[in-house]
Nucleic acid binder design. Structure first.
Length: 316
DNA sequence: AAATCTCTCAACCGCCGCTGT
DNA sequence: GACAGCGGCGGTTGAGAGATT
């Protein structure tokens, strides 16, 4: 008699039944866990010890918190991941009631995509090179004199010399802040502090401006203290289209160049995105109050639209 | 209403490190 | 020191559910 693939070696595989769950819970309540190798036999389960341990640790444990991740939890995951990397068990240890498996799944299915959409590399937590290259392309299309340097994994500008600045930022307006010092009228950006020659025609994308302190990582080094009036008019937008695999970056800060950038790259499509993109409209999120609050990291970023002359493919 | 596509997440697999012999 | 057993971890898979066509 042949055994089904899910029952090789007399051991069952696949989804657990309520009866099996009950047996496992019952046994652990009476005898405690540990000795996972012998537990299934003693508990009358046709499972391997590993499977029992996993079922208990990831699903049956009484202290497991089920349900959606809160905004705070998501922020914590991102912050911890930026420091720890894929150390899911260590991250889980900092989130009571959440399992490493759950966090790992949530990272892979939600957070990772969100960061990518925002132009942030989910591995390094720094601006993605492809976005920067795109910005470079677009910038040089707009102003052939401007070229963009790459930011390597150490967040350092490299490659060709820094662009010649048509308007170098006043140095006394650049300060170093701790993340918790960020205020609402602050714009944070990441660049090499030794070479902080911001040129605003390229810097918004090149240096990945971000806004306020709810950033998912710490890749901002400097803060621009905007006058309140400008800050309040900084409508930060972020929208994407699952159909076009694109996103729109917008910026409406007074005094900043007003680009429209549409139908650009995004490596992953998204179904969670709340809006649909076309060349004439986009959904705007203001102050993180639109839609599901957890989908509003983008609202903390200053995004640029490069309009006029771009077709839906993002090319001139 | 059916077919197809996309997404989620529970579960598995292989590897690694620790411990005991 | 070498080996075996075990638990734990991180990457990956695939079934099922939901969304879309």
């Amino acid at each position: 008699m042949t055994k089904s693939p899910s029952e090789k070696n007399g051991l069952k595989k696949g989804p657990w039944t309520p009866e099996e769950d009950h047996k496992l819970i019952d046994y652990i309540q009476k005898h405690g866990h540990g000795k996972w190798r012998t537990l299934p036999k003693n508990a009358g389960l046709k499972r391997c010890g590993k499977s029992c341990r996993l079922r208990w640790a990831n699903y049956l444990r009484p202290d497991i918190k089920r349900g959606r991740f809160s905004f705070e939890e998501e922020e914590a995951i991102i912050q911890l991941h930026s420091v720890l990397g894929n150390k899911w068990s260590t991250i889980a240890a900092n989130l009571p009631g959440r399992t490493d498996n759950e966090i790992k799944n949530y990272w892979n299915t939600h957070i990772k995509k969100k960061l990518i959409k925002m132009g942030i590399d989910p591995v390094t937590h720094t601006p993605r090179l492809d976005v920067l290259q795109l910005a470079s392309f677009l910038s040089s299309s707009i102003n052939p004199d401007v070229t963009l340097n790459h930011i390597n994994n150490n967040n350092q500008l490299s490659g060709s010399p820094l662009p010649q600045c048509s308007q170098t930022m006043q140095h006394d307006s650049i300060q170093t802040f701790q993340p918790n010092q960020l205020q609402e009228n602050h714009i944070a950006y990441k660049t090499n502090p030794m070479e902080a020659k911001l040129e605003h025609q390229i810097s918004p994308i090149a240096t990945s401006f971000s806004h306020q302190s709810t950033l998912p990582n710490l890749w901002y080094d400097h803060i621009i203290d905007l006058p309140q009036a400008q800050s309040s008019s900084a409508m930060q937008c972020f929208s994407s289209s699952p159909k076009l695999n694109t996103f729109v970056l917008e910026n409406q800060i007074e005094g900043m160049p007003n680009f429209n950038l549409s139908s650009l790259l995004s490596s992953t499509p998204s179904s969670s995105s709340p809006s649909t993109l076309n060349s004439s409209s986009s959904t705007t999120f203001v102050n993180g109050t639109t839609e599901d609050e957890r989908d509003t990291y983008g609202s903390n970023m200053l995004m640029y639209n490069i309009s006029n002359g771009l077709n839906d493919s993002g090319f001139l």
